[in-house]
Structures are given as C-alpha cells and as structure tokens.
Amino acid sequence: MIRLYNVHKNYGQHVALRDVSFTVSKGEFCYITGPSGAGKTTMLKLLYGAIQPTTGQLQVAGMNLSLLKKNQLPLLRQQIGIVFQDFKLIPTRTVGENIGLALEVIGTPRHLIERRVQAVLNIVGLPGRDHLYPAYLSGGEQQRVAIARAIINDPSILLADEPTGNLDGAMAVAVMDILQKINLRGTTVLVATHDAALMKRFPYRCIRFRNGQLEKR
C-alpha cells in the first residue's frame, strides 16, 4: 500500500529525511513516531503529496509520487483520508458540509452526500450533529468530525498527523478507538504521534524516526 525506497528530503541545506525506506501493507495499523523535529510531519506530507522527495522513490495507493504531475495530485488525495492535529474544519460550514466536502469535490449528488454524512457520523459517534457549526463542538468532537470527513469516501489509506495532540486523555482514547475501528474495516492507518502512553495502550507496529533517519522500521 505504501512503499518508500531511499527517500531523501532536503529543505535547502537542512536535511529533513535521510535515506528512508519502509513498506506498509494493506490493512495495517502503523505509528510514525519520534521526538519533535524527527521528520514525522515531513514524512506524512510526502505521503499526501504536499511536498516532493528530493531523491528516492515513493509509492502510495499504487501511484508513484516521485513521478506525480501536479494535476494528478487531487486523484491521490481522493484515495486517501487525512486527519490533522488542528482538525482543519471550515468554521463557516456546518459539520455536515465539512464532512460532505470530500464527496462534493468528486461530484457526488447531494442526497448521497447527506446519506453518507449520517453514516460516518454514526461511525465516529456523533449522530445527528450534522447541522451544528464546529465552534459548538468540543475538541474531541471536532477531531471526530475531521475523521468522519477523512473516511467519508472510503479511502484505502488514512493518514493522521498527531490526531490526539490537542485532546485530553479520555478524548485521545476515544479518537484512537475510532481509528482502530476504521482499521478493522480494512483501511490502512498511519498515525504520526509521540504519545508513548497511547502507543502502549494501542500497541501496533512503530516506524521510529530520529534526526530524519529511520531508527526502527
């Protein structure tokens, strides 16, 4: 599902990632971990095409990102779901509209979007909240809305960048429960985190970075 061969990423003189190679299989749950500045976010940005590797080969969902043209980027993004630490919800749109955006961009009819929104809200435990605006929700609920948006188009891969970073313990566990549930449905899940307690509570394979290099695959 995800393959990296000798990937390097430099920002000018600064080396963010050095000679990174690993594979994540279909349906796997996997952590990308390491201290701050280790390269976790850079790694995720490479995986959803926000940046290009300086050298090396990168394959995600059957697409070679090193050869990806700019106009093919939406195709990649339509096949993966992304969850951010700061949720990235549109404050002027309702929960339903925020979640439905991922289907709107591919031209799904409105009645189908509404039906799917209700279904994913049930999965993340927020039934009937589609008419609320994000500001009326707690941090944990907003993160669950972000997860609902990421899974509404049944992506094969879900990337989560510090999804519990802004949440308290109980909320973090609730979010991890949802991610686990999504993984059990067959979605490959990659979670970038440095929360050791959470990784201990939900033990999965860890890909550990330090100073831009792989420490553990």
């Binding site: 106009n71 939406p74 195709l75 990649l76 993004r77 339509q78 990235k88 955006l101």
Partner: peptide
C-alpha cells in the same frame, strides 16, 4: 482544506 480532500483546480 478543499485541496487537501482532493479538490481539482
């Protein structure tokens, strides 16, 4: 955000 969820140009 629209671009992150796969919006085309």
């Amino acid at each position: 955000i629209a671009k992150l969820v796969g919006a085309t140009k």
